[in-house]
């Protein structure tokens, strides 16, 4: 019980942070009624989705300090499970999404076990590779639509079981609910034993081991928590976009964006992933509408992201949130 209360207890944050969170929540609640156009609404949905991804990544990547660059494979697992179960067996979202999460967790343990024998750059590269391999398998796998991907059958009336709605508003509130579930979870996580142990591993892995911490096992656990988070988001992507293929839900781009956003905002902090997504998602969409399909081709987006991350991390390795904290400490 004590620990459950931790999820909803924000009392150790500063007053400014708590007021900020309150205002932000009110803003989100009324946002659909502010008369924003469909483009802006779509950007908001993406922002909440990527915040959710980033929060998940933050467990292993931020608190645990492991450069994890393969989250896309778990987005894919979540998305494909939802899509395929609907297409093949007409199974509703509310069943297929949890199944996708369970598969992602199982898969993450399988991958994580050998993966966390590696450290540093080797680990980072291996995470990329595992994700690329899974993507390649899906690109060539006829049964799951191969490179063409899968279209979800569209129901002609709104259907809560399959999360099909005419209006974006429903999707907005749904991803908002997932976002807050993630936020409360992270608020619990950062105060949990695992949260403390991961931070110690990030600080000094040898010292952590000397304090009875099985570093590898802790990392595997955090990795699978992160995987579960992004699989939820993947499931959402399937019902929201109604079309998925290995490029949209399993690409290296996606893995890098997830990690980059959290690092830019501030890895290992509660608000970092949200701040990062608030910066990068609108930028990403803006570049997308400006450059159209060429954006990915010429790689302008990643050049800009890379420049941003270099500038920020040269100044403060803990990202934008780190800079804010630095100023606050000086002011105090």
């Amino acid at each position: 019980m004590e620990t459950l209360r931790d999820a909803f207890d924000f009392s150790d944050f500063s007053k400014a942070e708590r007021i900020g969170l309150g205002l932000f929540t009110i803003f989100l609640l009324v946002f659909p009624w502010l008369g924003a156009g469909s483009f802006v609404k779509a950007v908001m949905i993406q922002f909440l989705l990527f915040s959710l991804f980033g929060m998940g990544w933050n467990t292993i990547g931020g608190y645990g300090g492991q450069v994890e660059l393969g989250k896309a494979q778990y987005v894919g697992i979540g998305a494909y499970t939802v899509a395929l179960m609907m297409v093949w067996w007409k199974i509703p979202f509310w069943v297929s999404m949890p199944v996708g999460v369970l598969i992602a967790i199982g898969y993450s343990f399988m991958i994580g076990y050998p993966l966390f024998r590696l450290k540093g750059h080797y680990f980072a590269i291996a995470t990329i590779c595992t994700s690329l391999v899974l993507q390649d398998i899906f690109i060539n796998w006829k049964l799951v639509g191969a490179a063409k991907g899968i279209e979800l059958p569209i129901h002609d009336h709104p259907d809560f079981l399959f999360m099909q709605f005419k209006s974006d508003v429903y999707y907005f509130y749904f991803i908002m609910a997932l976002f807050y579930a993630g936020l409360f979870y992270m608020n619990w996580f950062r105060k949990s034993k695992l949260g403390y142990q991961l931070r110690m591993i990030k600080e000094d892995e040898d010292a952590a081991e000397s304090l009875g911490i099985d570093a590898r096992w802790c990392k595997i656990k955090a990795y699978s928590i992160a995987s579960a988070f992004v699989a939820v988001g993947g499931g959402f992507m399937a019902v929201y976009n109604l079309y998925i293929d290995p490029y949209s839900v399993m690409d290296l781009d996606l893995s890098i964006k997830i990690a980059l956003m959290a690092m830019l905002g501030g890895a290992g902090s509660m608000w970092g992933p949200i701040i990062g997504a608030a910066f990068l998602i609108p930028l990403d969409r803006f570049l997308g509408s400006w450059l159209g399909g060429q954006k990915g081709l010429i790689g302008v987006d990643f050049m800009i992201y890379a420049a941003m991350i270099m500038v920020v991390s040269a100044y403060q390795p803990r990202g934008i949130w780190g800079i804010i904290e630095q100023f606050r400490r000086k002011g105090a």
Partner: peptide, 23 residues
């Protein structure tokens, strides 16, 4: 190893977490 990510209290709490799950 001189680190900057955790306070002294948090450092020592990690040691104590070795014998309990309760914060």
């Amino acid at each position: 190893k001189v680190t900057a990510g955790m306070t002294v209290l948090e450092n020592v709490m990690v040691g104590a977490f070795c014998r309990t799950d309760q914060r």
